[in-house]
Design a protein around this nucleic acid. Structure first.
Length: 511
RNA sequence: GGUCCGUUCGUCUAGAGGCUAGGACGCCGGGUUUUCAUCCCGGUAACAGGGGUUCAAUUCCCCUACGGACUGCCA
């Protein structure tokens, strides 16, 4: 048993992190913080072939944007480093010796072609076993079948070789998973996994056992795709004689493709109609750009909230939860077992909820750069006021410019559908009356309340219909049919602009 | 092919032997509103199938079907 909760998120820098990975990181983080433990980030870069430049940076930036704070990692430091596997070679070299010495690992010299041939042969024989294991390793080129001297000679000669794990034959392994309960497997189903590749670097299986142990990881929380190799990992701990110090395991349900089947993958990119990456990603090789939640106008809090509810739910029915609340409520026992497809519609709803509840000045900080690009010389306080008026209509931060354009510029055209519905025979003269009415209001009294009072009084006095007057009025002001409270609009754009728009509307709108 | 994991409304989920199977998104209808949005009210819709166990199964067990993961000198 471990006295302190320590969990790690261990991505490999082979590209951008997709939302499934972010969720794994999030669950690790929530679990760690719930138990006042540590959350570490370990970069698993033992596959130099698949290393992608910028991916490491991307992973860290993504977690930062999400508000997931790292306690120990490359940038944060810590007492258990290095936190990058490529910098831990000596440690792995040291550890593999132990397994070599106690007979749980062995050298193998088979070429890729020979391995293919083995698989093919086994497949054709109709055998259910198609693996390099206790039954088949006797036919292969390794330190079980070769005289000791030949083994050393091969190694000396510089010939490529790997080190494999000698999986014991016919042993029942029962492993415990926090989410799934007990899983039982017979060791004969496992194969003699490569522990060290011919490039001298360990594989995931080996490095992760060594590191988790050395870094005193108490709980391994990772995706379900790792469940099949859990027995192997247990065997590895056993081979080291550390089964009693083994972390506890929890395998998270997968995030599935919303369209079609299968687990969500990096390659799904944005052809799914919604981003699969937290941040925008530019492929360094192809230059292709994949959309990110951030750039698409999502608030990080909304993004995280939505992700947390994929596979987990709090005890009550609450759906809108801050990171703090999630930490408080989080419980691995409430993570369920089946995979989750997620709905882009609900993601939008989450974002809208967060936009509505985020203070206007904060929202302004997010959108100001875009707004300034489109409408130069805007006043920050004005933007702040406008966003307060339109935010409940926004699903994405990027909706602002389209939702609020008429607060910044005179409408250039009028929605024909709305014109047809709202602009009647007698409308122009009515608009003229409104014009005259408003013209008489002094600048400083051109407020929401006062203008509303004046106009409504006029409508009532003349026994007119509210909709008949206000709808076309809205049309000349905004060019369309929807939008915030009409008198908020005119008090915002001011008297001069209001009069100008009425005049322009009377002149330009024709049925 | 083999091994493992899974299966409640279209989607995300609650449920841990006895419930009219609950909530959320979406959708539909109504209310509020000058409009759109928000908000409020209502409606739609699910226990994969078959066997057991039990007085009683969505819930426990088995089988089948379906889905998924894994099956690399990738993680």
């Amino acid at each position: 048993m471990h006295e302190k909760v320590r969990v790690r998120f261990a991505p490999s820098p082979t590209g951008p992190l997709h939302i499934g990975g972010v969720r794994t990181a999030l669950f690790n983080y929530l679990f760690a913080k719930k138990h006042k433990g540590d959350f570490l980030l370990r970069i698993e870069d033992t596959d130099q072939m698949r290393y992608v430049k910028g991916a490491e940076e991307y992973i860290m930036k993504s977690l930062e944007w999400c508000g997931i704070e790292i306690d120990e990692g490359i940038n944060e430091g810590g007492d258990f480093g290095p936190y990058k596997q490529s910098e831990r070679r000596d440690i792995y070299n040291e550890h593999i010796k132990k397994l070599l010495n106690n007979g749980s690992a062995y050298y193998a010299f088979d070429t890729p072609e020979e391995l293919d041939a083995l698989r093919k042969r086994l497949e054709e024989s109709g055998s259910s076993v198609r693996q390099y294991n206790a039954q088949t390793r006797g036919e292969m080129k390794n330190s079980f079948t070769m005289p000791e001297n030949d083994v050393f000679a091969e190694i000396e000669s510089g010939k490529p070789y790997v080190i494999r794990f000698a999986v014991p034959e016919n042993e029942t392994i029962t492993v415990k998973d926090i989410i799934r309960g007990e899983v039982t497997v017979n060791s004969s189903q496992l194969d003699d996994k490569v522990l060290f590749k011919s490039d001298g670097l360990p594989t995931y299986h080996f490095a992760n056992i060594v590191d988790d142990h050395l870094m005193k990881i108490s709980h391994v929380i990772r995706g379900e795709e790792w469940l099949p190799s859990l027995p192997l990992h247990v065997l590895l701990y056993r081979a080291f004689g550390r089964e009693d110090e083994m972390p506890e395991f929890a395998h998270l349900p997968l995030l599935l493709k919303p369209s079609g089947k299968g687990k969500l993958s990096k390659r799904d990119g944005d052809q799914l109609g919604f981003p699969v990456f937290p941040l925008e990603w530019k492929d360094p090789k192809t230059g292709d750009i994949s959309a990110g939640y951030k750039e698409s106008g999502y608030l990080p809090e909304a993004f995280i909230n939505m992700l947390a509810l994929l596979g987990w739910s709090p005890e009550d029915d609450k759906e809108i939860l801050s990171l703090e609340e999630m930490i408080k409520e989080f419980d691995l026992n409430r993570v369920h077992k089946s995979g989750a497809r997620f709905s882009p519609e609900k993601a939008l709803w989450f974002n809208q909820q967060y936009i509505i509840h985020t203070p206007n000045d904060e929202l302004t900080d997010y959108i100001l750069p875009e707004v300034e690009k489109k409408f130069p010389d805007v006043d920050v306080l004005y933007v702040e006021k406008v966003i307060g008026l339109v935010k409940e209509r926004m699903h994405l931060l990027t909706d602002f410019c389209s939702q609020a354009a008429f607060f910044f510029e005179t409408p250039k055209e009028y929605n024909p559908k709305v014109v047809k519905k709202r602009w009647k025979e007698d409308t122009p003269q009515m608009m003229q009356q409104i014009y005259d009415l408003l013209e008489d209001i002094p600048e400083q009294r051109f407020t929401t309340e006062h203008t509303e009072h004046i106009v409504k009084q006029f409508i009532e006095k003349n026994e007119l219909n509210f909709g008949k007057v206000l709808n076309p009025f809205r049309l000349v002001l905004t060019g369309t049919g929807g939008g915030p409270h009409l008198f908020d609009i005119i008090s915002s754009i001011g008297k001069e602009e209001t009069l100008l728009r009425i005049k322009k509307g009377i002149e330009e709108i024709k049925r």
